[in-house]
Write a protein that binds this DNA or RNA. Structure first.
Length: 470
DNA sequence: GGATAATATGACCGGAAATT
DNA sequence: AATTTCCGGTCATATTATCC
């Protein structure tokens, strides 16, 4: 890799114009990927990689519109960045992420000149991805922000919004003020700008709730005897802050920060395309979200995605307050929304039937082991594996000949047993004759890592990146 | 400018409560 | 009494802020 490194050195040493620097950098990343694939072809062993080190010039933290709204289990932007840059010479600059989540791949794709095609079961994820990738007119956002403040102080009534357990999460007066604020947002005529303010509002509903900000799912923040006096004092301080919070003032703080993020992104990448929604279910993709024309076979040159890992994260429950507030799902609809999501946390109790599943023998054995400890966990895992294999069927179908599929995933624990998501996905793609070109392993010393929560839950210590070619 | 403290962030289940 | 649903709960680490 000596030549590549010296090329990279040249990037900083010589006074090249910026487009030339970009080209050299793209070439370097392209060659890095080729070299890793050659190495994998020779040795057939996974290659260790540290994406943070490889893409060291990409700072983590609050960059562009990445942090416009909190969302669980965000992908490391470095991974999306690397694979998009390495495929910059595609003639058709399309990239599909059927599990778009908060839109990390979509944002990186849009700033690098790709049209992102996205799907997700969670309507909040789709809204967030759209807002993240839209090059808003800043002046228009500021005008609407002022109009909202103007209306907010005049409106006295607003429709009641149905929230799960509202008294647990909000002061009654705050709930009412939030409803009035939401009324002003609902009256915004332009749909794109309305989406922007809805996302800001959604952040606010978490910020002024009594939910512990340190836990992804809503959990009431409260002091405990076992905590140290310092921790308890901090908790009390936050509880006091919530009680005295000024709704419109906090809203404007969030709006200003997000306008700043959009401004920065507009300045750096003025010509970027908004993500196009192609479905809610990764198992059946369409040309548009609102029609019934299936996405054509062999039409997508690049897929970059990170699917849910088993039932590891409670995406629906983690966004339940937002979903209720934005009326994307009422409290009663949360369950049915979860039923549409792959990697769900709940399942109605019925006996485990292993013969129906048609899963590989070693996975059947694993499910038996899990069932011995907890039959419900085994059924959730079985459902997950069956649905993921259907996802692979769909991705293999829409991928163009010679197209690449990048899958970022981790292995998680179920009842103390390791679930090898990576091996399972490899077997699924190989059924469709997609060639496994590369396995990368990154020890994630990042915030993507969930820590040990209880006796049986374990730490996910590394992420696997699989590269397939059709 | 380097050390240290504070802050922000987030790929797990089990058991209580409700229902049948 | 059995089954099903619902809901509550952490801590390691990267990044940022503050101190000297």
């Amino acid at each position: 890799m000596g030549d590549l490194n010296s090329n990279l050195m040249a990037l900083s040493s010589y006074a090249l114009d910026s487009t030339k620097k970009e080209d050299l950098l793209d070439q370097y990343l392209q060659e890095t990927l080729c070299q890793m694939m050659d190495e994998y072809h020779k040795n057939q062993t996974p290659i260790d990689i540290d994406f943070r080190k490889l893409i060291h010039w990409l700072r983590a933290g609050d960059q562009l519109t990445h942090q416009i709204h909190p969302y669980p289990a965000k992908l490391l932007p470095h991974i999306a960045y690397f694979f998009l840059k390495a495929h910059k010479n595609l003639t058709q600059k399309l990239v599909l992420d059927p599990f778009c989540g908060s839109g990390t791949v979509a944002l990186e794709a849009s700033i690098h000149g790709f049209l992102p095609l996205v799907a997700d079961a969670n309507p909040l994820a789709l809204l967030l991805t759209k807002v993240k990738t839209t090059p808003y007119c800043i002046e228009k956002l500021i005008r609407i922000k002022e109009k909202i403040s103007y209306k907010y102080i005049r409106y006295k009534v607003a429709p009641t919004i149905d929230i799960v357990n509202p008294d647990l999460w909000y002061l009654p007066e705050h709930k009412k003020q939030l409803e009035i604020l939401l009324r002003t947002i609902e009256e915004i005529v332009d749909q794109e700008e309305k989406a922007f303010f809805k996302i800001c509002f959604s952040s606010l509903t978490k910020k002024v709730s009594f939910a512990d900000p340190a836990i992804s799912v809503p959990v009431r923040l409260k002091t405990k005897e076992k905590f140290s006096p310092t921790i308890n004092a901090r908790i009390n301080k936050r509880l006091d802050w919530i009680k005295s919070a000024n709704i419109i003032q906090e809203f404007n703080i969030i709006v200003d920060a997000n306008i700043e993020r959009v401004t920065e992104t507009n300045n750096k990448y003025p010509n970027r395309s908004t993500a196009k929604q192609v479905g809610i279910d990764a198992r059946s993709l369409f040309t548009n979200l609102n029609d019934s024309i299936p996405m054509p076979d062999n039409s997508v040159p690049l897929v970059i995605t990170s699917p849910p890992y088993g039932s590891a994260q409670k995406y629906v429950r983690a966004s339940s307050l937002s979903l209720n507030w934005l009326e994307l799902a009422s409290p009663k609809e949360l369950r049915s929304l979860e039923e549409k999501s792959i990697g769900r946390e709940h399942l109605r109790k019925t006996p485990l039937h292993l013969e129906e599943s048609n899963l590989p023998e070693d996975y059947v054995q694993l499910l038996k082991k899990i069932a011995h400890k907890n039959e419900l966990r085994a059924r959730i895992t079985q459902k997950y594996l069956i649905e993921m294999s259907q996802v692979v069927d769909e991705i293999a179908r829409v991928t163009a000949p010679n197209g690449r599929v990048i899958f970022v995933l981790g292995n998680n624990q179920v009842c103390g047993e390791t679930l090898r998501n990576d091996r399972f996905i490899i077997e699924c793609f190989q059924k469709h004759h997609l060639k496994l070109k590369l396995i990368l392993i990154d020890d994630i010393k990042s915030r993507g890592l969930m820590t040990k929560r209880n006796r049986t839950a374990s730490v996910i210590s590394r992420e696997t990146v699989l590269v397939f070619e059709k």
